[in-house]
């Protein structure tokens, strides 16, 4: 039996909107699970059902062997970090951390010990007497984490906690969250719409779309082996290129080139997916790209151009290569790293 079990969990709002459809998954003890998906896909609702902030319409959730469908949020022993931190504005940092412990009837000495430990771990010891309004974004973030850690809960829930921070701090906090989770070893669920966050943080990743889990797996599994066009387009940056085409008798025709010996028995209209980083320049390649725009990122160059009818086709090459606007490139796909999807439903067919 897994640490956290979701079995056919469904959420239907009173107005009839179905936010989560019969979702089942298991999260193991100590695992870092990330829910990723576009906004409105139901990932936050799913998290809030685990926290007990939303009722479960159908299905059941088991945490540590206990059915928690009807358990009050305060008795579930879960801790949550909110997007806007939800720090208690009228209490200083110490009391913010101590409040949950006080409500659990823990003795004053123990509270002080635990708060100081957590503060030390998060390097907020100097700010314990300050009010949240006197802290910077990063410090507030740490206090919010501290409030979760100090209670030593069964599970951490993160609801897009990094989206209020600036880019640099976000990367730094991302790293810290990952390190902290490894150090404390608490089972965690992290909700985000940022695929880079998802890839870097997750032990396992659940890509959610329209209230359904599209794919569940380790980040690299999902990157290498997306099961659907949605997952393929969502994971990976810059986004995968999609080209329309036709697959007949293992031969794929698309935008002026052909790929033979496709490992698929599918026949009909398809979408061909190629990641920008899975191509390289050759003398006589499959794809002829006329360059419209070059983004130089230093380490890499992102080349955008046109191939036959497809605009904004992206190709990624090392930053040392100098490519000028208006030039023509000939590209090959490396090691048959391409994906073929059924055009009608977006499912992977190769």
């Amino acid at each position: 039996m897994s640490f956290l079990e979701l079995n056919k969990v469904t959420k239907i709002y009173p107005n009839g909107t179905k936010a989560v459809h019969e979702t089942s998954m298991n999260v193991e003890n100590g695992e870092f699970m990330v829910f990723v998906g576009p906004s409105g896909c139901g990932k936050s609702t799913l998290l809030r059902m685990i926290a007990g902030l939303e009722d479960i319409t159908e299905g059941y959730i088991n945490l540590d062997g206990i059915l928690i469908n009807k358990v009050d949020p305060s008795d579930r022993d879960v801790a949550m970090v909110f997007q806007n931190y939800a720090l208690y504005p009228h209490m200083n940092v110490y009391n913010n951390l101590a409040y949950g412990l006080k409500n659990r009837g823990i003795s004053k000495e123990d509270i002080e010990k635990k708060v100081n430990e957590a503060a030390k771990l998060l390097q907020i010891s100097e700010y314990l007497q300050r009010k949240p309004s006197m802290l910077s974004g990063g410090q507030r973030q740490r206090v919010a984490m501290g409030r979760a850690i100090v209670r030593n809960p069964k599970i951490f829930l993160f609801d897009e906690p990094l989206s209020n921070l600036d880019a640099k701090l976000r990367i730094q906090m991302r790293l810290e969250i990952k390190k902290l989770q490894q150090k404390v070893g608490v089972t965690s669920i992290f909700v985000t719409h940022d695929q880079v966050e998802a890839m870097t943080l997750a032990d396992r990743l659940a890509v959610i779309n329209n209230g359904l889990i599209e794919q569940l797996g380790t980040p690299i599994e999902i990157y290498n082996n997306p099961k659907s066009m949605f997952v393929a387009g969502f994971i990976g940056s810059p986004q995968m290129n999609f080209l329309e085409g036709e697959l007949i008798n293992k031969t794929l025709t698309s935008e002026g080139f052909e790929i033979n010996n496709v490992t698929s028995d599918f026949n009909g209209p398809v979408i061909l997916g190629i990641r920008p980083e899975h191509m390289s320049q050759t003398d006589k390649g499959l794809i002829n790209l006329s360059v419209d725009l070059v983004e130089q990122l230093g380490s890499d160059n992102l080349i955008y151009g046109e191939i036959k009818n497809k605009k904004d086709f992206c190709f990624r090459c090392p930053g040392s290569q100098i490519i000028k606007k208006g030039s023509k490139l000939s590209l090959n796909i490396n090691d048959n790293n391409y994906y073929v999807f059924d055009k009608s439903n977006g499912n992977r067919v190769n």
Binding site: L53, P73, S74, F82, N84, Y99
Partner: peptide, 14 residues
């Protein structure tokens, strides 16, 4: 904000 109530709930406040 609602989060304050939710956060307090998770912290065991009735």
């Amino acid at each position: 904000p609602d989060e304050l109530l939710e956060s307090a709930k998770l912290d065991g406040a009735n």
